[in-house]
Simulated scan of single mutants.
Amino acid sequence: MAWSTQQVAELAGTTVKAVRYYHRIGLLDVPRRAANGYKQYEVPHLVRLLQIRRLSDLGVPLSEVASMERADEQPDEAIRVLDRELEATVNRLNRVREELALILRHRAPAYVPPEFASISGDLSERQRSLLMVFSTVLSEDSVERFRDLISEPDETDEEFEALPPDADDAVIESLAERILPVVLRGREENPWSRAPTVDAPRGAEHAAQTMAEAVVQLYNTAQLRVLKRLNELLTEEAATGDAP
């Protein structure tokens, strides 16, 4: 008895497209053709398709099916390798599920780093973008510390975020002066904040440059002027020995 491509595909629980693909990549021999030109699949072809499907169900990539079959002399090792790969996949999926649960619990945007899900509702789109950039260059420990640092916003944060680009010098000076003690207090309570990039995975310089570029491009002219003035005030405080 012989089967058509459609019939053997149905018997093996796969598709005609898959059968043809197996032929193309060399996993399944092409059967003889009948006088009418149609392929005639026999039991060995069906068995082969069932083998391929079984290995695929176990998580073996098609590119590795042939090598798995050649592992008859050491089948245990091949299976152990596959098991380790599947364990890594399961762990990754469990981690993703945990992150999704966190996002749902806090109703946070899916793209927000999970470390910031709990506070994302109080942040602007610009602040979220900034945090996304920071989380890619800072160490995990620094990201957690940074989250704790910004989880208790000061009243000046909202004012800074809403600052229009055409704010005058008086407004900028006033805001910078009011932010100064907040920053000094933060540095005193969180010494880490003085050098947050020191343990960055790709180096402190790379992290600092990336973070600075994000700030420059995400904030408007007036906000950047406030940051510049704040830095000047910090330098003055340090020079007088009053700043940590």
Rank of each mutant, 00 (worst) to 15 (best):
E144H: 10
N91V: 04
V47Q: 10
S193N: 11
R185L: 03
G203N: 03
E115T: 13
R225E: 12
A195H: 11
L58M: 15
H23K: 06
L50G: 00
D29N: 05
R48H: 10
S4E: 09
A200E: 05
E87Y: 01
F146D: 12
S124R: 10
L123F: 06
T136L: 03
S120W: 04
A200P: 10
D199T: 02
R95D: 14
N91A: 14
D157F: 07
Y22M: 08
A34N: 12
V81P: 01
E73H: 13
R185K: 10
Q209G: 15
D29W: 02
A195E: 15
D166K: 12
L149I: 06
A108M: 00
V43N: 01
Q51Y: 00
A239P: 00
L184E: 13
R54G: 10
D168W: 07
E85C: 05
E155K: 07
P114C: 07
P75C: 13
D168T: 09
K39H: 14
V90S: 04
R145D: 11
K17D: 05
F116M: 07
E188R: 15
R185H: 12
V65E: 01
P191T: 09
R147K: 15
N220P: 05
I172D: 00
A66M: 02
N36W: 07
L233T: 08
H45T: 06
E85K: 15
L46E: 08
E159S: 04
Y38F: 13
Y22T: 09
A214M: 10
E158A: 15
G37Q: 03
N220M: 09
A162L: 09
V96R: 14
R202Y: 09
E87L: 13
E42G: 10
D29C: 06
D122L: 11
L184P: 00
E152I: 04
S174H: 11
P244L: 12
Y111F: 11
A176Y: 08
P44Y: 06
S67Q: 15
S124V: 06
A12H: 10
V198C: 03
R84D: 14
R20K: 07
E125Y: 02
I52C: 09
I150M: 08
N190L: 02
D242W: 08
W192V: 09
L123E: 13
S193I: 14
R202S: 12
E140V: 13
M132W: 05
D154T: 12
A71K: 01
G13L: 04
